[in-house]
């Protein structure tokens, strides 16, 4: 394997890790506030559809992005209503949201576009297009011939869409918000001991709704990235289990922002390698089943959860509805 192939794989890793990262941070906010969310997948899918659909109708990817975020926020609202206001089962609510998104996106897509559950393909201003850094080479042949440093600059650092750079920024932002602000302290506390937060006179319900809303916004951006940046348009079930891989990454990261970055990039690398079986064979000299690489994030999560390699302890009040004492 030459240096350029390595850069290409790392480049694909970044592209594939971004939706995982955004969804993972979304789940982090929700679960740190004590609301389990297995509906990340559905929220992403709904956002992917509405972003692509509205972008295609209006011709503006920005309006599409807003529509995607709105769709995701709506589902977050349903989740909040079920799990915070009506104190229902958060896991069941998440399952319902996943199905709701899987069904509704195809139903609406068919009704609006009649193209078998997809949106028209997007181009130009309907997409988040790659941003090329000044001086970066753009064609594959040019990059291949350039020096290693130039290859890294042109292929790996430059040429991603705006959302990629934004997603990378959300990691320090999340860290700062959670660990350096009063809101973050309270949000973490409400996931560990809501009664204490309530005693201090802070609204548990309000904090949890805020966390669920942030989760919705991030999932919305993740979904918009899928259909308007990673691909050009929505296709049925395009989230393809990414919401669950993000959930796995969240456990792997033990609910911490920087570790979420590492975990999602690791899982992104697996996805990138799954697309390049030739490279794996060339490097380790034997064939690895694509299915095995695809299942690796899940297997690793089970191993981590089982506590054989470090222990993942979720927020203590996670999944428990809070009932105020009378």
């Amino acid at each position: 394997m030459d240096f350029f192939t390595l850069i290409q794989i790392l480049d694909a890793t970044v592209r594939l890790a971004i939706p995982l990262l955004l969804a993972c941070l979304a789940g982090l906010f929700s679960e740190r506030a004590g609301i389990f969310d297995i509906g990340l997948e559905g929220k992403m899918l709904a956002a992917a559809f509405f972003s692509a659909a509205i972008a295609s109708m209006t011709g503006s990817v920005w309006i599409g992005l807003l529509a995607g975020i709105a769709a995701s926020l709506f589902l977050s609202g349903v989740h909040g209503l079920a799990s915070i206001t009506f104190r229902g089962n958060q896991l069941i609510s998440g399952v319902a949201i996943n199905f709701l998104a899987a069904g509704m996106t195809v139903l609406i897509a068919q009704s609006w576009f009649s193209q078998g559950g997809r949106t028209p393909s997007l181009s130009g201003a309907e997409r988040f297009n790659p941003i090329n850094f000044p001086g970066a080479l753009t064609t594959t042949n040019e990059v291949k011939a350039a020096s290693p440093l130039m290859q890294v600059y042109s292929e790996l650092l430059s040429g991603h869409s705006l959302l990629v750079y934004f997603a990378l920024l959300t990691v320090p932002m999340t860290w700062w918000l959670l660990y350096r602000t009063r809101f973050g302290l309270r949000l973490r506390a409400v996931g560990e001991n809501p009664a204490a937060v309530d005693t201090a006179g802070v609204s548990v319900v309000g904090l949890r709704y805020a966390a669920v809303a942030i989760c919705g916004i991030l999932c919305g951006i993740a979904g918009a990235y899928l259909s308007t940046a990673l691909q050009a348009g929505f296709v049925k079930d395009m989230s393809a289990g990414r919401g669950f891989i993000a959930l796995a990454a969240l456990i792997f990261a033990k609910w911490r922002p920087w570790h979420a970055l590492y975990a999602t990039f690791l899982f992104g690398l697996f996805q990138a390698l799954e697309l390049r079986p030739d490279v794996i064979e060339a490097v380790i000299g034997m064939k690895i089943q694509g299915q095995f690489l695809g299942a690796l994030p899940y297997i690793m999560t089970v191993v981590i959860l089982a506590g054989f390699v470090g222990k993942a302890i979720p927020p203590r009040a996670g999944g428990e509805p809070y009932v105020k004492e009378r």
Binding site: N89, S93, S111
Partner: peptide, 28 residues
């Protein structure tokens, strides 16, 4: 008709939502 099969998935989701997660909304 032009209604896709996914309609069942939506109905299934609504059943799970109302009989499962939003149980208290009806019960209270």
């Amino acid at each position: 008709t032009s209604i896709p099969r996914e309609l069942i998935v939506v109905i299934q989701a609504l059943v799970i939502l109302f009989t499962g997660a939003l149980d208290n909304m009806v019960r209270m």
